[in-house]
Amino acid sequence: MSDNPWTDRIVGARMTVDQAFSARIADSEFSNQQWSLIMTATEFEIEHPDDPDRARIVANTDSVEQIIPELENMPTGMGAMGGQGAGKQGGSSSGGLFASIKGALGLDGGDDDDHADKLQAAERLTQEYADELQSHLESEGRWESVRKSVAADT
């Protein structure tokens, strides 16, 4: 189980939101495998749990930056379903061996921008997920009890 007892209480809601959110992931730049890794590195928290008007679920993505290099080793987008991946995967014809070696050594210059772009995309998507999760809990009439339990624990 997790360090957050409130997240353990909403496992069923998370599964429901996961299924509904799968279409959003399919339209994103991330494969399902990449999204799973992003979600593993993301923790969900409730900000201002003692204030019903300001309380909201937020995605804490502090650890996501550490897994960005691993995301780039996984197939992306539709290419993840079989065949070659998109982007830098699969050895495109531009650049060849020399470009591959430079890239592996971090000398191609584009990695920092690519890392930052992937991190921003992951942060946006995880917060969209957090918003969907809160909306689902509200529609199920469970948000107040979850919020109150977090407020009582703080």
Rank of each mutant, 00 (worst) to 15 (best):
L97Y: 12
F98E: 15
F98R: 12
A99K: 11
A99I: 04
A99T: 07
S100G: 13
S100L: 02
I101T: 05
K102P: 02
A104V: 03
G106F: 00
L107E: 10
L107M: 15
L107D: 02
D108W: 05
G109S: 06
G110E: 13
D111N: 11
D111L: 11
D112Q: 13
D112E: 08
D113F: 06
D114Y: 15
H115Y: 15
D117Q: 04
K118W: 05
K118Q: 15
L119Q: 10
L119T: 14
L119R: 09
L119H: 13
Q120A: 13
Q120D: 12
A121R: 09
A121E: 04
A122R: 09
A122P: 09
E123Y: 07
R124A: 13
R124D: 12
L125V: 10
L125R: 04
L125K: 12
T126D: 06
T126P: 08
Q127L: 01
Q127Y: 04
E128D: 14
E128K: 10
E128S: 12
E128N: 09
E128A: 04
Y129I: 04
Y129W: 05
A130K: 07
A130C: 10
A130L: 00
E132H: 14
E132Q: 11
E132Y: 11
L133I: 01
L133A: 02
L133S: 06
S135T: 07
H136M: 01
E138D: 05
S139M: 04
E140F: 00
G141W: 00
R142W: 00
R142T: 03
R142H: 01
E144D: 14
S145F: 00
S145V: 00
